[in-house]
Amino acid sequence: MYGFSVAPEPQGRGVGSALLQAVRQEAAARDARRITLRVLGTNARAQSALPSTWLSG
């Protein structure tokens, strides 16, 4: 996967978090050693969600 975005209407409802969790699961299934994430500098919601979503668990 190269990238994804969440349409404006469902933003804030956990869609991005669910997508990131699916990426983590798929990466684990494929024995991936690294996942690189980049967030656009203008996307404050995603920037604030990443630490709690990505770094936990």
Rank of each mutant, 00 (worst) to 15 (best):
M1H: 00
M1A: 03
M1E: 04
Y2V: 06
Y2E: 14
Y2Q: 08
Y2I: 08
G3F: 00
F4R: 05
F4S: 00
F4Q: 05
F4P: 00
F4Y: 15
F4H: 05
S5C: 10
S5K: 07
S5T: 00
V6S: 02
V6Y: 01
V6W: 01
A7G: 10
A7S: 13
A7Q: 09
P8H: 10
P8Y: 11
P8G: 09
E9T: 13
E9W: 12
P10N: 09
P10M: 11
Q11V: 07
Q11R: 15
Q11A: 10
G12A: 05
G12K: 05
G12V: 03
G12Q: 05
G12M: 08
R13F: 12
R13C: 12
V15L: 12
V15T: 09
G16Q: 03
G16V: 02
S17F: 01
S17N: 07
S17P: 02
S17Y: 05
A18K: 14
A18M: 15
A18C: 08
A18Y: 13
A18F: 10
L19R: 05
L19C: 09
L19F: 11
L20Q: 08
Q21I: 06
Q21V: 10
Q21L: 12
A22T: 07
A22I: 07
A22H: 14
V23C: 14
R24F: 02
R24V: 06
R24S: 14
Q25C: 05
Q25M: 06
Q25S: 09
E26P: 03
E26F: 06
E26Q: 15
A27Q: 05
A27M: 08
A27I: 03
A28S: 15
A28V: 12
A29H: 09
A29E: 15
A29N: 12
R30V: 00
R30H: 08
R30D: 09
D31T: 10
D31G: 13
R33V: 04
R33A: 09
R33L: 10
R34M: 09
R34G: 06
R34W: 09
R34L: 07
R34H: 11
I35E: 12
I35L: 12
T36D: 13
T36L: 14
T36R: 13
T36W: 10
T36M: 05
T36G: 11
L37P: 02
R38E: 14
R38C: 13
R38W: 14
R38Y: 12
V39W: 00
V39R: 05
V39G: 00
L40T: 03
L40N: 02
L40F: 01
G41Y: 01
G41F: 05
G41C: 05
G41V: 04
T42I: 08
N43L: 01
N43A: 01
A44I: 06
A44C: 04
A44K: 01
A44M: 09
R45I: 04
A46P: 01
Q47Y: 02
Q47V: 02
Q47L: 04
Q47A: 08
Q47C: 02
S48C: 12
A49K: 03
A49V: 02
A49L: 11
A49F: 04
L50Y: 10
L50Q: 07
L50V: 15
S52C: 09
S52H: 15
S52P: 03
T53H: 09
T53V: 15
L55V: 11
L55S: 13
L55P: 03
S56F: 10
S56N: 15
S56K: 15
